[in-house]
Nucleic acid binder design. Sequence first.
DNA 1: ACAAGCGGGACTACCCGTTGTT
DNA 2: AACAACGGGTAGTCCCGCTTGT
Lengths: 215, 215, 215, 215
Amino acid sequence: MAVRPSSKQIIVNQAYELVMANGFAGTSIDMILDACGLTKGAFFYHFKSKAELGVAIAKRYVDQDNSFFVRFMVDVGRKTDDPLQRVLLFLESLANSYTSRPRPPGCLFASFSYDNHTLEMAEFMKTWTMRWRSHYGRMFKAISQKYEPLIEIDEDELGDHFICIIQGGYVLSRIYNKPEQVAMHLRHLMNYVTLIYGKPVEPELAEPRTTEGVA
Amino acid sequence: MAVRPSSKQIIVNQAYELVMANGFAGTSIDMILDACGLTKGAFFYHFKSKAELGVAIAKRYVDQDNSFFVRFMVDVGRKTDDPLQRVLLFLESLANSYTSRPRPPGCLFASFSYDNHTLEMAEFMKTWTMRWRSHYGRMFKAISQKYEPLIEIDEDELGDHFICIIQGGYVLSRIYNKPEQVAMHLRHLMNYVTLIYGKPVEPELAEPRTTEGVA
Amino acid sequence: MAVRPSSKQIIVNQAYELVMANGFAGTSIDMILDACGLTKGAFFYHFKSKAELGVAIAKRYVDQDNSFFVRFMVDVGRKTDDPLQRVLLFLESLANSYTSRPRPPGCLFASFSYDNHTLEMAEFMKTWTMRWRSHYGRMFKAISQKYEPLIEIDEDELGDHFICIIQGGYVLSRIYNKPEQVAMHLRHLMNYVTLIYGKPVEPELAEPRTTEGVA
Amino acid sequence: MAVRPSSKQIIVNQAYELVMANGFAGTSIDMILDACGLTKGAFFYHFKSKAELGVAIAKRYVDQDNSFFVRFMVDVGRKTDDPLQRVLLFLESLANSYTSRPRPPGCLFASFSYDNHTLEMAEFMKTWTMRWRSHYGRMFKAISQKYEPLIEIDEDELGDHFICIIQGGYVLSRIYNKPEQVAMHLRHLMNYVTLIYGKPVEPELAEPRTTEGVA
DNA sequence: ACAAGCGGGACTACCCGTTGTT
DNA sequence: AACAACGGGTAGTCCCGCTTGT
């Protein structure tokens, strides 16, 4: 059932791990190939340049990131129909997922935002981040239809703010070398949301959940 | 008065700019030297290795960053004695400072957190970030002595959260290529603080302020 | 009638064009294959090495070159029986063939003489060039049987001199990027022959002729 | 007195020899550096690319070629004032210089014309070749002022024709692997010139001369 | 306090040739 | 007859570290 991944996939996977640890410029092709047990011939058969590998990594990251967050939202969707509860549960279980990691998490886009500079990549990152922004924005819009916010807010901005806190949490968790740091910041976001909509989470629904290896 | 900067300073300054744009691994000594109009001889007279330059850049960044934020706090301190107003004014004027920049801001530590990995540097970054954390934590403690928070909070965590939002805002402003993005997230933090302490900012004290070049 | 060329022929043809433009060492197998829309498998099925391709190109060049020059000689042979007239007409119509080319001509052997160095190839080139030398030498011998040369000459050397002027003309036409340069030098050879045998060409027999693509 | 040549000069000299033997594309930087006993560091300090080395080689070739031919012309100028005699003596002694070489001569421009393709180089080669053309053209114009040519000729074309025969002779001498081949073709040019101007060379002035290493 | 020069190695890119499969 | 995939090595580029000279 579990098919052996193709060489190309192996390269992308290993490259992703290494880039997260050392940055794109700090990761050499040789490093990646050593980790894969492959040679230059294989690499340049599958990718015509390192930049092309960068794009492939980014695409893989998006896929993985999407499925990671979607899984939480699907789980949460099964537990309650209340949009506010959904968001709070989502944040809660997400926060919990960061408490048991061996290494600090990180976002590939953040890494690239500080060292990669092809236009194609910039465009790609912008497009996907805005997609996420409006995706989370819709979550908050669903809340606003049922609950009156105490202050005037733009739900898309709140979506962006969620991403902002994830990104900032990642950076700090790397600086402090404490993966669980992200959880704390997510809980502050939960506070913020709760205060905005004037209704606390019902804790009996929350349930820890551990997940592996992804951001 | 304005002394011509020494070669060493020129190198550090140029290196800082280039590292913010291309990452540390993506910035070569030759690149820096070209930008300075100097040669290897000069570089290796002042620094015994590239890693040492990294440390120098980090130190320069800390100095600059400190003075940047301190300036806002001093200004704000002159306008009001109320600790809550101080924080809100601080955040407001800081937010305004991000609305008129030519390029998106960035934090050297964030960049390093994704690509630079000497132990010395990690320690250095951790130390300073924690110092900032407790510095901002004290700001919030001052508020808590006067105002009762509506929810239970840890003021040091709030200090950390401030840094978190700055970092996340930087990353997003780079991805969107919109410097003003940071301001929006700071205003959400202002909302959060206001909701926690149950008291809004008095807008007549707020006053725009433009600042140049630093994060 | 016009059969679709086999893959092998396609490879040789494309390779020939590319080698004329970039030299043998400057033409990679991948380049050729890209131009053909084929892959390594096809190449190494037909040729066991790049050197073998070199030989195939050389043979194709010889065939094409032979038929190119023979066509002129046959045409000329139909117009007059006088050996001197034949040579002058041959040179004249050959010269005309160089006046309407899109790109400067070139000789594969010349290219190889400056960058390809297998013994087999050297032998091959030498053999064929000497064959041409004596072929053209016979043309001049036919003249000498009818006309007394004003100066002492070796007809085989004259044959060689013809090749020499073609080669030199090619080189100059490439340097100047002017295909028609070759014609001028051929007309000087016509002058030379005329002066040697003391008899000018009868111009009414000359007739322009356009030819395509070959050297 | 004979200063030790600089590393840069050593590289250019060795590179020139190797390019003449293997072509530009067929000569690797490592090959050159092995021959020089230097390393990549030295090479890329002096040249920012292989193409830049190409230009340096071409310039060196031009210098050397100029001085080579000028030496013959100066020698000849001392022996006679008659322009026709000068040219014939020049060709004669030049021809002699090709009879005692260990390896066939070659022209760097010819080599480049078949494998090098930067625009800068093309322009450079064209410029210098036209300069030579008109230089030799002036030689023939000097003759025409004293002697009436038997046929209508353009002296600049004759200058070009001289270069053409040199180039063609080089190619053939490489194909036949016979350096002395060039001499034969030069003597045919002497015949041609003699026939044009109706006056033979006075042989008692001719005197063999050996020269080394250059084209 | 810097300029010039260079050693030696690492990096990306690409090359030629092979293998297994269809 | 041809393709996908890859091994293993090389090419051109560039980089960091160091020395020597002024």
